[in-house]
Nucleic acid binder design. Structure first.
Lengths: 131, 131
DNA sequence: ACAGAGTTGACAACCGTTCTCAACTAGCCT
DNA sequence: AGGCTAGTTGAGAACGGTTGTCAACTCTGT
């Protein structure tokens, strides 16, 4: 067993996607990232962008969320688990942590005999400047 | 102002969809519901199923969720606000209530000046019979 | 340099969802 | 009843995001 997956190459494209992911803080769709790369002068095929993002999600390097209409959006994973408070008018996002929620979900799941628990929690509201 | 929306007709199709929604407890996709109606002998066009479900969601009669791969699934709404504990293998669903979470989200949002707060919370795990 | 596994990208295929539009109804007015 | 009209339906096309295909390409170790 090697330290990295065997036969996984750090190609130009993968590096470009990784670099792009570090260049913004918010969630972007795969197509946004594809365009961003093209404008930057590092064009990467759309299929490759999807493949690479998928891998990064599997590796836990990137967070995957779904918009309300089912589109996948990606974002560099910060090291701590957290949730988002999103303004439903302007989209402004605040990261929030909720140890209480983490505990609560695990407890509830345990009560019903569910294991291997994960959860998704997003809070929507109207931000101060949109009220 | 009338008691019901003006110009909204209780057609055969709408009644059939409403009846179908009362006939199961778990979440189903629009296409599942479309098939269910066909097998029942009340065939309703797929587009109509989508339209009707959309309306019911808007009216708050039906809950809309997204599966992990972005597909929309629908379910008759019970009157109390609650969340779902879903088995990621077999799909078994348990309704859970979390006054603590409700309070927490409102508090967090308030701290950041956000108003008119709503939230989505889904818990995923492996149910006892799938472990 | 060579071999061979891994990777890429243009494009087609897929699949859930929405749109289009002519035919059809339900409800209302006379 | 008959007719008018806004609302509704359904078959199929269109759409948009995502995944599959496959021949050409590129690392990496030998």
């Amino acid at each position: 067993m090697t330290s990295t997956e065997p036969g996984l190459r750090p190609t130009k494209q993968r590096l470009a996607v990784a670099a792009a992911m570090s260049s913004f803080e918010d969630f972007r769709s795969a197509q946004d990232i594809h365009e961003l790369l093209a404008h930057r002068g590092d064009p990467v095929g759309l299929a490759t962008v999807y493949r690479t993002l998928q891998r990064m999600v599997d590796a836990g390097e990137v967070d995957l969320l779904r918009t309300e209409d089912g589109e996948a959006i990606y974002r560099r994973c910060s090291d701590t688990h957290h949730h988002h408070l999103v303004c439903r008018d302007c989209g402004a996002t605040v990261e929030v942590e909720g140890p209480a929620v983490e505990r609560w979900t695990r407890a509830i799941a345990g009560e019903h005999g569910y294991g291997d628990v994960s959860h998704t929690l997003e809070i929507f509201g109207t931000c101060p400047s949109c009220r």
